[in-house]
């Protein structure tokens, strides 16, 4: 450890700087096209979480937490849960819980299938931010432990 800066070596940092945006973009693509092609909220959420974890592993804890701090992460996770539940409750406008009340549209278009894309976005927020929080807590614990010793 010659330098004091956190994270891995220069090679890893450069490659991470090039790829992390692409990974995040791919996750967003998977989420938005979940009702047309394989993927959906679960896989896309995990890919988004993996992009932030990639950033954290390469650059150290502070850089990743600057992008997405823990308070903001908890707000986003609650937002995902509330969004999913409120979409479900809005179904009472037409009759029952989880009614597909929006305009269906033509199949095979991006804007189609009523509430399914919105539900995908809510679930991806919930899964991605939740798994990122789990990882941050597990890593944070290790760093605190090493500081104490």
């Amino acid at each position: 450890m010659k330098s004091k800066e956190k994270g891995m070596t220069l090679i890893v940092k450069t490659v991470t700087r090039l790829t992390v945006g692409l990974i995040l973009l791919y996750g967003i693509y998977i989420v938005l096209h979940g009702h047309l092609s394989p993927g959906g909220g679960f896989a896309g959420g995990v890919i988004i979480a993996l992009s932030f974890i990639h950033l954290m592993l390469a650059f150290g804890r502070e850089t990743a937490l600057k992008k997405l701090s823990q308070a903001r992460a908890s707000i986003l996770e609650s937002l995902g849960a509330i969004m999913f539940l409120s979409i479900a409750v809005l179904g009472f406008l037409g009759g029952y819980f989880f009614l597909n009340f929006l305009f269906k549209g033509k199949p095979f278009n991006l804007f189609s299938a009523g509430i399914i894309p919105l539900c995908n976005i809510a679930i991806s927020l919930k899964v991605g931010v939740g798994l990122f929080t789990i990882f941050v807590v597990l890593v944070l614990f290790k760093i605190l432990k090493e500081d104490n010793e």
Partner: peptide, 23 residues
């Protein structure tokens, strides 16, 4: 549902209670 992906149609429309429990 208007969705081309039948699995997405099942987990988010026909059986959305499962997904709520999963969340």
């Amino acid at each position: 549902t208007g969705a081309a992906n039948i699995v997405a149609a099942i987990i988010l429309d026909f059986r959305a209670y499962d997904t709520l429990g999963e969340a």
